[in-house]
Amino acid sequence: MGRYLRSLRRFWGTAAAGQMEYQLNLLIELVAMAGNLAGSLFVLSLFFRQGEGLGGWSWPAAQVVLGAYTVLDGLTSTLLRPNLSRIVTHVQEGTLDFVLLKPIDSQFWLSLRTVSPAGLPELAVGAGLMLWAAPQAGASLAPASLVLALVLLAAAAVILYALWFVLAATSIWFVKTWNATEVLRAALTAGRYPVSAYPPALRTLFTLVLPVAFLTTVPAEAILGRLHWHWGVASVLVAALALVVSRLFWRFALRFYTSASS
């Protein structure tokens, strides 16, 4: 465990140093970060302007869902995209060799090798939005529901990560899977709105096929204090299962790795 913590510290230390190596680029990154944030806030303002309920959700309650989505989007920009999009490059250029030769779990390396500050403000705004909108929707913000919401957001993050990782891992066979991850990303934007706002067919799709419901609706319901317990349990189970599947899938995929020729 010590080895993993120390490695992680060095991973992120070098990632930060690498970003600071190019002052201008860092500046641009900060601008992009602000742009990202402005985009999220714009969508938010559109929400405010309407004024009706959405799928049985009141305005403030729907904003909690948007908050959860913003948190996950921030996490995507901070950790998931910078790391997982590199897997394809590693496979294409054969540098996955170096990762596989290290006496450390390759999935750990590929998933946490770098970190980008780009999504941090989004994370903060998303969390803020959830905390601000929940009381408006009548939630008491009891410590229990806060902890539950945090756990379920973590579960949501794991589910999102596992899905993305499995897609990226298919690059072992197909080499290029940029498009697949983009499709995934687009589909997951559906998580901006409560699942019950969608027609029944899509609702089923977003619960059973793409676990959009678990990503945003379930954590939002937790902080609102109206989550049915079986959804909470299901969410944690789905997350655990997704993580296990991603590990098994990675191990399976590596059997087919041929390594780009040198």
Partner: peptide, 29 residues
């Protein structure tokens, strides 16, 4: 074991070799 490939590199491009060496030290414990 170790593998050195003349056509591929493991050093972090933008940082001095010492930074990569510190990462390797951690990874190898």
């Amino acid at each position: 074991i170790t593998l050195v490939m003349g056509q591929k590199q493991q050093l972090i491009w933008d940082l001095p070799p010492l930074d990569s060496l510190r990462v390797n030290a951690a990874v190898y414990g």
